[in-house]
């Protein structure tokens, strides 16, 4: 139990997926202009990464390993994730319309998010078992949620600041990401 909690804290905060591993930079910069949209995106990412790391771990354990075709993991994972996101979208639309309303818009945006594939591959490389994979996926996605929501909050305030012209737009957002990354480095002594 303790090991699992440490794993979760490690993936969510210490090795934050965006700020120290640089996965999922695209939505982090693209969909972080407003807190509500950022939170919606973060929620959808939590959902998709948790489900996809579970499915990827299942496939790796029960299909790829017995047939000795682990080398196909990159191809299989990316296709499974793409199909899974489509499937999740259809499922939510049909059976949970309220959840779909809040998360559905963002689901297709996540298909090629490198964080999803990155987590699935990391789970395999680090030889996590099924439970550890799901926890790692969930925690990593929570780290993404944290980062994107904080970023959106800061960006809403930056709107009113007087920024030098060359730094307006993406550049200042990257400076903010740099400062956030320094702040998150402070957690590195935790584990």
């Amino acid at each position: 139990m303790k090991a699992l909690i440490l794993l979760a804290i490690g993936s969510a905060i210490v090795n934050n997926v965006v700020l120290s591993q640089f996965l999922g930079i695209c939505p982090f910069l693209g969909v972080s202009k407003k807190t509500e949209t950022a939170a919606g995106m973060g929620g959808a990412v939590i959902f998709v990464i948790t489900v996809s790391s579970f499915v990827a771990a299942l496939i790796y354990k029960f299909i790829l390993t017995p047939t000795n075709t682990q080398y196909l993991k990159t191809i299989v994972f990316i296709l499974v994730i793409a199909a899974l996101v489509q499937f999740v979208e259809m499922f939510l639309k049909k059976s949970m319309p309220s959840l779909y309303q809040s998360l559905g818009v963002y689901l297709p945006l996540i298909t090629t998010n490198c964080a999803v594939l990155g987590v699935a591959l990391t789970n395999v490389t680090k030889e996590y078992n099924l439970l550890e994979s799901v926890i790692n996926g969930f925690a990593t996605a929570c780290g993404f949620f944290l980062a994107i929501t904080i970023m959106a909050g800061i960006r809403e305030k930056i709107e009113y600041n007087d920024i030098p012209k060359p730094f307006q737009g993406t550049a200042i957002v990257l400076i903010v990401a740099c400062l956030m990354s320094i702040a998150f480095m402070g957690f590195s002594g935790m584990i």
Binding site: G169, T170, A171, L174, I175, C178, L179, S181, M185
Partner: peptide, 22 residues
């Protein structure tokens, strides 16, 4: 040392984007 760590990447890219804007 911070330049070879994670924050340095964001900082260098931010400066690069700003220079490219000019």
């Amino acid at each position: 040392t911070i330049f070879v760590m994670a924050p340095g990447a964001f900082l260098v890219l931010a400066v690069l984007v700003a220079v490219m804007n000019i």
